[in-house]
Design a protein around this nucleic acid. Structure first.
Lengths: 191, 191
DNA sequence: TGCCCGTTAGTCATAATATGACTATACATA
DNA sequence: TATGTATAGTCATATTATGACTAACGGGCA
């Protein structure tokens, strides 16, 4: 018996959000996600997940088939439409996602918990590499921002980029502080 | 054909790390993860994942069976041991996890990308709730730290907590700034 | 003394997500 | 005319998440 509360995921939210605008088919959703740079917040690198997630939303009644078109002789494409339950579920998901920090398990803290398995010297080198990559990420984000600013896009449509930038910056500052501790011997260990 | 490079995950890393100390069985790994508070960086709430991940590590030759004991008439338990390939793989995983930021997809940025579907007023209320929870999280983390400090545990064994605290603090500051923008009308939209 | 409950130790089954390989049409262009 | 690229999607497998279930042991209490 599947749980009454449908499972939420970043991708499911994004798909419902697009269908809130108008009915569309899977491939178009991928296009829009990429065009609007939302592929930084939902994973569509593996585009199959889009089809799988749509299947699930359909099965759970959050979306329904709008029509199945066959333009000319091109591969048939199914357009979907959001249902009332889908609308309600989306809003309920958004409310908890905004108000309640989720328990997530990113890689970096797990790696930090493993420092004793490495030497302080090698950790220092590895973190140097991370600092360089974080700096490049910040530069890329700033370039992007200059572009979207130039297009006059309203801030609310890129607010998640501001958040991600703040997090990258905080991580960078933290890593640099740890490197300083390593260099000056305030943090060390054997093995 | 499975890819040559075994798939890494926070849990797999943590399990190999424990087996680096000494051979042990699945349940003991869970106990140690909880005792050492590493259940903040790896997900063992669903303890079945431990068995599934061990199966995978075994199949991939990163660990091997040490012995199968049957103390008295209690349920048999299999103790595992890390292999040389496991040791190498662990170190290789840690190197990339420390030096290279991963592309991950947490919930909050995905929710932020959906703000246009809500009203500025409701967003403000929801983010107020988040601020309260983030504050409580910080307080809990600080309590924990006082405890471990009192136990004289070396800093390298809790460094991941420092990182997580820094991230929570950065998120809190960012959310509060956004709330201020909402309140003072610097960020608004229709619908 | 007998029973229940928590701890120890793990299995079975299903859902969801990640990942890669594959099919097939239409259109542009070298 | 051949070839690549964009469109639109399916099939298959691996991994992770989640919940239900089995079973033995030891301690406490009615």
């Amino acid at each position: 018996m599947p749980p009454r509360t449908h499972k939420r995921s970043p991708l499911a939210v994004q798909l419902l959000l697009l269908l809130l605008e108008e009915p569309m088919h899977a491939y178009r959703m991928q296009q829009l996600i990429r065009e609007r740079h939302k592929d930084t917040v939902v994973n569509i690198a593996q585009r199959n997940s889009v089809y799988q997630t749509l299947d699930r939303l359909l099965r759970d009644g959050l979306i329904e088939v709008h029509e199945t078109e066959q333009t000319g002789n091109r591969p048939r494409s199914t357009t979907y439409r959001i249902t009332d339950e889908g609308r309600e579920t989306l809003l309920s998901w958004l409310r908890t996602m905004l108000s309640t920090p989720a328990r997530e398990f990113p890689e970096f803290p797990a790696a930090l918990a493993s420092l004793p398995a490495l030497t302080p010297e090698s950790v220092r080198e590895l973190l140097d590499g991370r600092v360089a990559k974080l700096r490049r990420t910040l530069a890329r984000m700033d370039d992007e921002k200059r572009l979207t600013d130039g297009m006059g896009l309203h801030r609310v449509f890129t607010i998640e980029d501001e958040y991600r930038r703040a997090m990258v910056e905080a991580e960078l500052a933290w890593v640099m502080a740890v490197i300083a501790d390593l260099v000056e011997g305030r943090l060390t260990w054997h093995r």
